[in-house]
Amino acid sequence: MNFSRALLTGGLAFTVTVATTGALAQASDFPNRPVTLVTPFAAGSGPDAVLRLVSDKLSRLWNQRVVIDNKPGGGGFIAIDQARRAAPDGYTLLQLDSEHVAALPHLYKSKNFVTLQHFDPVASLFRTPFFVAVGTDSKWKTMGDLIAAAKAEPEGVVYGSWGVGSPGHLGAQQLEALTGIRMRHAPYREVSQLYSNVGTGEVPWAFASIPSSQGIYKAGKLRYIAVAAPKRIPQMPDVPTMAEAGGPASLEVNSFVSLLAPKGVPAAVKAKINADVAKVIADPEIRARFDTFAFEPLAWSPEEVQRNAEAKSKVYGELVRRGNISLE
């Protein structure tokens, strides 16, 4: 009996050792062929520009081609479905923002799709803050002014966003929840048209990132009256925080972008990708490009990406239920 148990235990130990050795060998050999980065973002967008920089650096580091495959549309599901069909070997990665990960499951209830049930976080790229943008001629100088106007005329103040379920939409929903105000939402298909209309005053305000609104801002047609963050942003040091501008101190509106892989990628391969992406993100050329967009470089572990995504999912779930928001 003891002899049989010893054989069983020894065999199990041998199997585990072989599996571990095989996984480590696979990681040390990774990648030995081209890697594809699938993205739901259109070519020329901020996340796409960052991904191309990252892919170029990874290609040099890995001595392998790193191919960008843009699959915009379908609320992100076109890119998601393509990556989901790929083998879980690390050779197909998916770039998603935190809304694809944390908001989609709440916005598309009938799909019964929970992103993190099908994909594992592998590496983080950056986080972008959002500013409250108004037209240059707007009478609102502070968040206090905007909130007072909305309180004086419930549902009379209109805000724009780049789509239902976007950070701009959900951020405004959170502002309503924290202040008790009620506003009307005007979703846009074209981001450039949104900020053009904010600049002319046709839409009184919208949340905006620097890359999405900098053209109108540099033309002198936009003002940023607050950044929805606990600290001022180095690229816009004169723009006050939400609290400093008279808004709710707890309101933070941001989005982070990461790389995910179909579930089942060996842990050693994921660890190698994470370490190599972190090395690339630390490159001075990429840091300089991030600065132009006010993107905050992130070097989170997969576990940190998961925790931050789950925290956002909780917030977004409550906001979607409160606002009865759906993309079905």
Rank of each mutant, 00 (worst) to 15 (best):
L7S: 02
A19H: 04
T20E: 09
N32K: 10
R33P: 10
V35N: 13
G46F: 14
K57S: 13
S59N: 01
W62K: 09
N63K: 12
V67A: 11
K71R: 15
G75E: 04
F77M: 12
D81K: 09
R84E: 12
A86E: 11
Q95P: 01
H100L: 09
K109N: 06
L116D: 08
Q117I: 01
F130P: 00
D137I: 04
W140C: 06
D145V: 00
A148E: 03
A149Y: 05
K151C: 01
A152H: 11
P154N: 10
Q173H: 11
L175N: 02
H185Q: 08
V191S: 11
S192N: 09
S192M: 05
S192F: 03
L194E: 01
G201R: 04
V203H: 03
P211C: 08
P211H: 13
K221C: 00
L222S: 08
R223N: 09
Y224R: 06
R232A: 12
I233F: 04
A245L: 06
S250P: 00
E252C: 00
V257A: 09
K263T: 08
V277K: 11
I281K: 07
R287Y: 03
A288L: 07
A294P: 02
F295L: 13
P297F: 08
E303R: 12
V305W: 08
E310K: 13
G317L: 12
G317A: 07
R322N: 07
